[in-house]
């Protein structure tokens, strides 16, 4: 549907309960709410639970946040605490 096409799709790769991973989960949830009006679908992948995805999706740094939709796919690394770098890196305008 049109609505779902407009929704942004994000995938966050974390590693267990490491500090930067848990912080990244909090930060991305806030970004979805505050910068994108909640219009985004977030998937969190723990590479300890699914190690094969680290290779399949070419993950090196943890955390890594990937915007899979809308195209072009973009990704950023780090605990997402520097919000402007997250928005710029993913090519998301955010709340103006």
């Amino acid at each position: 549907s049109l609505a779902s096409a407009a929704r942004c799709r994000l995938r966050l790769y974390v590693a267990g309960l490491a500090a930067s991973s848990t912080l990244a989960i909090t930060n991305v949830t806030d970004i979805c709410e505050q910068e994108m009006g909640g219009q985004c679908d977030l998937e969190v992948i723990d590479i300890y639970q699914q190690p094969e995805l680290a290779q399949r999706d070419q993950i090196l740094a943890i955390p890594t946040l990937v915007k899979t939709w809308p195209l072009p796919m973009r990704s950023v690394i780090g605990d997402l605490s520097q919000r402007q770098r997250v928005l710029t890196g993913l090519g998301i305008l955010g709340r103006r």
Binding site: A15, A18, S20, I47, P51, I62, P63, V76, G89
Partner: peptide, 19 residues
Amino acid sequence: MEPTGSYDLEGLFVRLGYA
């Protein structure tokens, strides 16, 4: 890449361990 905060290369360790 401009990191957006602290990170490490745990992805490399997990891939190596898996392999």
